[in-house]
Amino acid sequence: MSERTIELEVLRYRPEQDQEPFFQTYKVPCEEEWVVLDALNYVKEEMDRTLSYRWSCHMFVCGSCGMMIDGEPKLACKAFLKDYPTGKIRVEPLSNFPIERDLVVVLDDFVEKLESVKPYIIPKEERTVEQGEYLQTPAQLKAFKQYTLCINCLCCYAVCPQYGLDESFVGPAALALAHRYNMDSRDLGRAARDDVVAAAEGIWHCSFVGACSQVCPKDVDPAGAIQQAKFAHGIDYLTSFLPGGKR
């Protein structure tokens, strides 16, 4: 494993001094097995203390370091330099979010949306600790498990054309999270979540481009979650016409 130098082109924006964002290029000596985050850390420690970005775990689980890398939303800790053979890499903050500074984006909108879908168990039956656990078979677990794997890195929002056009859209990660609880055998909160999930800005806003699922670094399928939710609401609507329906 040898060393090579890459050109890291980083979008800079410091609101106190920069009129508008600009690119700054750093020539970074890198180890062959590094990820983009290692190169950023090298810049921060050895070249430029003024560069700001978020990171922590360096193992694709904390979700801090989502950013655009050569135009695609990725985790910087999962973007291996060996996959960029030209040696020139462009790094920008996540698309579709306001820039707070450099590679740091403003997350308020997403956090509000996550909170709005009531992402917690609204129980079928209250249970005391003395009554022990809810039984949940591996098959019941599997029905929602993959939607629990979202790390809130927001790569899906950065690539979602609907969110790009209209930020009132609740968006992939928050809708997938609502679906995660709706599909949990311990939960009976779907109606309570529908205020947000089934509203115009909810699932019906998704045009099923599916880009969210393609870029997800954890292989979550938010597009699939939204389609399943639409289907469930379609069935509800149709059954409402049956005798005894809720219509």
Binding site: S56, C57, C62
Partner: peptide, 10 residues
């Protein structure tokens, strides 16, 4: 950090 970035996640 935002709560979900905390190191418990690792």
């Amino acid at each position: 950090v935002y709560p979900m970035r905390s190191h418990t996640c690792a």
